[in-house]
Design a protein around this nucleic acid. Sequence first.
DNA 1: GGTTCTCCGACCTCACTGGTAGGATTAGGG
DNA 2: CCCTAATCCTACCAGTGAGGTCGGAGAACC
Lengths: 157, 157
Amino acid sequence: MIFTTKAEYGVRLLVELGRHYEDGSPVSLKAIAEAEGLPLAYLERIVALLKKAGLVESTRGAHGGYRLAREPQSIHMDEAVLALEGAVAPMSCFVDDSAEGGVLCSHVIDHGQGCATKLLWMRVQGGVIKALAQTTLAELVAFHGHPVVPAREPVNA
Amino acid sequence: MIFTTKAEYGVRLLVELGRHYEDGSPVSLKAIAEAEGLPLAYLERIVALLKKAGLVESTRGAHGGYRLAREPQSIHMDEAVLALEGAVAPMSCFVDDSAEGGVLCSHVIDHGQGCATKLLWMRVQGGVIKALAQTTLAELVAFHGHPVVPAREPVNA
DNA sequence: GGTTCTCCGACCTCACTGGTAGGATTAGGG
DNA sequence: CCCTAATCCTACCAGTGAGGTCGGAGAACC
């Protein structure tokens, strides 16, 4: 159940943008790539996903770069990871049937209504999405600043 | 964050064994493969993982097969999935540092104490393990027996 | 006009998943 | 005793996607 580096790099990119959110001026990918030690060309493709999802804005040309489209407190990580990974599903047949009627995996058809494993994967998916949704970018930015604090359950609002 | 078919097939195999747990006699892989429509040779490798983890026992020779090593109520799915997938980690650097001192991913070293993303992945991992641990094999077996909406005849024979 | 950026698509390599093949080993049954 | 049914075990193989590179085209600022 491993996330790819898209999620890892993308979140770190967001954190970096969040640190400069107050500045107003955009941050170039080159600066981020150097600060985080990540391949620039690869970051370009990753940030494109975030832009398409409306999480970041871009300014082209010299002194251009990227900045957050919203304030860090309102950016929840489920949205970010969904944009980066395409889908948050424990099994390949779980594209995103959360709202659909009855999207069943192929091996289920002969079993009538939903395989037993589906119950399991649904619970797992729920756990992941919940964990992601409860974490905001602002939290990660703050954690980046002073990592000593062991954040327990700060999502009480 | 997709599980592989090892987890899918392995759990379905366990469910099938759970259905015949009361019988006492072992179930052959061939029977399971035919019942579930899965490749026999592939199942052999999967069940080997479950055996190594002590979840199932085997009897060799004619009329042999596999049976659960414990009763279904005491088999929690975190143990099963861990045996099948090797590790339940959201990121590659998360082998299993839950008990270790400070296993940090390589890109973290220069940031002092834990990257911001680690906080995120820890929460995700916690959510997944919790969801898995809260589900027992007995639950899945029961769910397999009588699905919520009986649109068709369930396979009870 | 050159520099610095974002943008965009093609390309490449490598590991791993998913599955197969072929056997050796063990146990029952005639 | 052989034959058959089953577990075991290792090697192999094709496809795919992850992870990353390259080259270039457009856009803004000096």
